[in-house]
Design a protein around this nucleic acid. Structure first.
Lengths: 171, 171
DNA sequence: GCTAAAGGTTATATCCGTACAAGTATCTGA
DNA sequence: TCAGATACTTGTACGGATATAACCTTTAGC
């Protein structure tokens, strides 16, 4: 609504720009609805593991490799004290181990135990299971979506797991 | 990786099925990453309005039209008592009004005030603003994504705002 | 060596959200 | 009319998450 068709100038790009903005907004709202409203499984993960969101997220973060407390805090978007609480809890449950860093003895390196890796995998499987509508897409649509989503991710920031892994590895 | 190319049988559909499952999982993980990790603006909304997530969500729910307490509770996925707390708070801030339902005097109908509608619009604008990568898509990709996302949403449940609005409207 | 900075831990306070119990007012159906 | 169900409110208790301050250890720079 309110497209003001009279304002389109010679090239027609002005009108197209308005249409693009609308389409982009519609797409984004749609993606948010799919992820947050229609197919949010975070509660399911919590029930399956008996862990809160942040604790489950900590396990999933560690699945890619060990992290220091500070790095983990950044991943979880929390502060250092609460990260201590979370790791204490996970350690008490036997899901993570705290280790020392050879190079810098101030650092604590948090590593998944086997049980922790199992739990992380359970969480990842629940969260990663694609919803029905995605599975029902025809081959062409799925391939197109796959390509476009990869493009959307590609423009973004580097995953930063590589940096993290490297910084820990040289110990 | 691990595509096991030898297992493809005559029709080639078996191999394609495996590829489809992988693509679907990759797409879904990508969409979750975009919405939850790379472009989550829920914190920004809270800061802009000075309201918690649930309160902001209540305002956005009411933007489509008045709701009874119970309907609002369902939208927020909370129980009735907490909904009372939330509405009390929003009312104290002058963002919503509690009204009576003519037909059934047990019901309380919650309506946005003008200030509440403004706040809801602010929230919606922050959350609905598409991230850069979406805006940077070329016309063909954006159109394809628009079409496919609409398809993904279409398979789902009816928005149920219509039902809600109708049930309130007959007052 | 001494000081400042960084990594972690401990403790405390507070808010948000969930859950449960109980009570009031109203409606519905036998 | 009377019992039971529904809508909402009040109160309470608790876990989860955030913020801040204080402290200890270790590292790095002068």
């Amino acid at each position: 609504m309110k497209t003001r068709p009279g304002t389109a100038d010679s090239a027609g790009t002005a009108d197209s720009a308005a249409g693009r903005a609308e389409a982009a907004a519609r797409v984004w709202r749609g993606m948010r609805t799919l992820v947050l409203d229609l197919h949010d499984r975070r509660r399911e993960v919590g029930e399956a593991l008996g862990l809160s969101f942040v604790r489950a997220k900590a396990l999933r973060s560690l699945a890619a490799g060990p992290l220091t407390m500070r790095q983990l805090a950044e991943r979880l978007a929390t502060d250092a004290p609460y990260t201590t609480v979370v790791v204490d809890d996970l350690q008490r449950r036997g899901l993570v181990r705290r280790g020392a860093h050879a190079g810098d003895r101030r650092l604590r390196i948090v590593t998944l135990t086997l049980a922790g890796a199992d739990a992380a995998e359970v969480a990842e499987r629940i969260l990663g299971r694609p919803p029905e509508p995605v599975l029902d897409l025809d081959d062409a649509d799925l391939a197109a979506l796959d390509r476009i989503v990869a493009k959307l991710l590609g423009t973004g920031r580097v995953p930063d797991s590589a940096v993290v892994a490297a910084s820990v590895r040289h110990a």
